[in-house]
Amino acid sequence: MEVLLANINHLESVSVLFDRYRIFYNQPSNLEAAKEFLKERFNNNDSVVFAANDNGELVGFTQLYPGFSSVAMKRIWILNDLYVEEPYRRKGIAKLLMSVAEEYAKESGAVRVILATQISNITAQKLYEARDYVKNEEFYHYALRLQ
């Protein structure tokens, strides 16, 4: 198993994974929209996508979005998406993807990686806590839905 930095040449395979990721979060399948969304990210350098490659087949991915901490005056990375195909789960692939993403963040001089998951996603929470991610109890996070 290797992890590669995905680019526009991986669009087809990563789009399938991204669509399945969205389905996991109860969104309707829309492969064309997924492809267009990722194409924009790749073309605009809006995110960084790492993909797990098993003998030429992409079986998982994580997507990081850049941000900044004004207080620390440093870069942060938002680990927004993490997905591994069902047959490949519980084989350390999510840990491997996270490890590569965290190393990338360190090399970029980032002060931290932040993420969020659904309250009901206990499996993900266990993974994050095992990797020393800490629930933030110092700040409330708010969201304003615009659509």
Results as ranks from 00 to 15, higher is better:
Asn9Tyr: 14
Glu12His: 09
Glu12Leu: 04
Glu12Arg: 09
Ser13Glu: 10
Ser13Ile: 02
Val14Lys: 10
Val14Phe: 15
Ser15Trp: 14
Ser15Asn: 05
Phe18Val: 09
Asp19Tyr: 08
Arg22Lys: 04
Ile23Gln: 04
Phe24Arg: 04
Pro28Thr: 04
Pro28His: 08
Ser29Cys: 14
Asn30Ile: 07
Asn30Ala: 09
Asn30Trp: 13
Leu31Glu: 06
Ala33Thr: 02
Ala33Cys: 05
Ala34Arg: 06
Ala34Thr: 07
Ala34Tyr: 05
Ala34Val: 02
Leu38Ile: 00
Lys39Val: 01
Lys39Phe: 01
Glu40Leu: 08
Glu40Cys: 01
Arg41Trp: 06
Asn44Gly: 00
Asn44Tyr: 04
Asn44Met: 00
Asn45Lys: 13
Asn45Ile: 07
Asn45Leu: 08
Ser47Gln: 09
Val48Cys: 11
Val48Ile: 15
Val49Cys: 11
Phe50Trp: 09
Ala52Met: 03
Asp54Thr: 13
Asp54Glu: 12
Asn55Gly: 10
Asn55Arg: 15
Gly56Lys: 02
Gly60Gln: 08
Thr62Val: 13
Thr62Arg: 08
Thr62Pro: 02
Thr62Lys: 08
Gln63Trp: 08
Tyr65Trp: 07
Tyr65Leu: 10
Tyr65His: 11
Pro66Ala: 14
Phe68Ile: 14
Val71Gly: 02
Val71Ala: 05
Ala72Leu: 10
Met73Pro: 01
Lys74Ile: 09
Arg75Pro: 06
Ile78Gln: 02
Leu79Ala: 07
Asn80Ser: 15
Asp81Phe: 13
Asp81Leu: 13
Tyr83Asp: 03
Val84Glu: 07
Glu85Arg: 12
Glu85Leu: 14
Tyr88Leu: 04
Arg89Val: 09
Arg89Ser: 07
Arg89Asn: 12
Arg89Tyr: 11
Lys91Met: 11
Gly92Ile: 09
Ala94Leu: 10
Leu96Ala: 10
Met98Glu: 01
Met98Leu: 06
Ser99Lys: 15
Ser99Arg: 13
Ala101Asp: 00
Glu103Val: 11
Lys106Arg: 10
Ser108Met: 10
Ala110Cys: 07
Val111Ile: 12
Arg112Pro: 01
Arg112Glu: 03
Arg112Phe: 06
Val113Ile: 01
Val113Thr: 01
Ile114Tyr: 00
Ile114Trp: 00
Ile114Ala: 01
Ile114Asp: 00
Leu115Lys: 04
Gln118Glu: 08
Ser120Pro: 05
Ser120Gln: 10
Ser120Thr: 08
